[in-house]
Amino acid sequence: MKPTAAEQSLFVVILGAGKGGSALIELLTRCSGIRILGVADSNPDAPGLQLARYHYIPTTSDIAWLVARDEASLIIDVTGDPAIPSLIARHKSPKTEVLGGIAARLIWSLIQAEHEMYEHLAHAEKLSTLGIFTAGIAHEFNNPLHGIMGFSQHLQGETDPAIISEYSREIVTLTRRLSEMTKGLNLYARTGQMPEITDVQIPQLLDEAIKMAAFSTMLDEVTVVRNYAPVPDMQVNPSELHQIFVNLIINAVQAMNARGHLTLSTGVEGGYLTVTIQDTGPGIAPQDLARVFAPFFTTKERGSGTGLGLYIVRTIVNKYGGTIEPVSQSGNGTTFRIQFPLSSAA
């Protein structure tokens, strides 16, 4: 009999939580059959340590202690510190293997290449979505522009101070509206290259995402229901979470043909911060449920969907240690349910 996946599990220890360590954590947590026993770095602010905590992976600054763990099948050393190999040799259990030096550098390069590929995909997905936004963006910009143009033309030659101040106020309001929109667009279009982790209020970000989604489809016929129970702030890159919500909202609205109820909820359930996005569309066919997250899976017409939306969504959710699942019965709408471990909350 073949051994089961659990029996085959590799228990990995990662030394070094800088760029290399973070990339390793991101990749290995996506592989089944691999468990990360712990991550060590002498710098308590190393970015990989935070990432590890999202995934409930123990972290420590005590490298010797972690190296000595008996269950470890493999130690991966990406510290680049010349003192580490001898420290490993002194403390590790005899059956633990070590990946270090040039071999670790090779792995690091492979991961780097994979990571770059993903970043390109994520960016391409954003650009393709921006493509479907352009008509909506033009519309949303042209309306206030029309107002600004109109009030300015009527200001010319106007001498009544009351009217002058009234029209100027209108122009200021319209200009503010334009600048709000460019802010929203900027949040979306920003590339993933510079991760900026900040405290993020999820309900506020959901509202931003609705505004953004309104560029791509008519939301006038969609009743938006907000069930925001108070949730703690999350420590995340807002641009990434924004991309998740925009994609899910656009999918929901597209599924409903822009007519129906869109319900957005937040809440805390048993150690998880939960966000659900629910629509009253046709639902997802049972045979498609397992495939919707696959890259390039789409049921939309050629040219209107790349099928990358949900793939990117799931990758980002997993990155923060979260899970996402569709709950759908054909004909009864779809609910996408996201759960983030509360450890990633501030």
């Binding site: 309306n143 107002g147 109109g150 009030f151 009527h154």
Partner: peptide
């Protein structure tokens, strides 16, 4: 949009 109607109204009535 109210502001758009206002512009049209101003232009046309004037």
């Amino acid at each position: 949009e109210e502001s758009i109607r206002k512009i049209s109204r101003l232009t046309l009535t004037k």
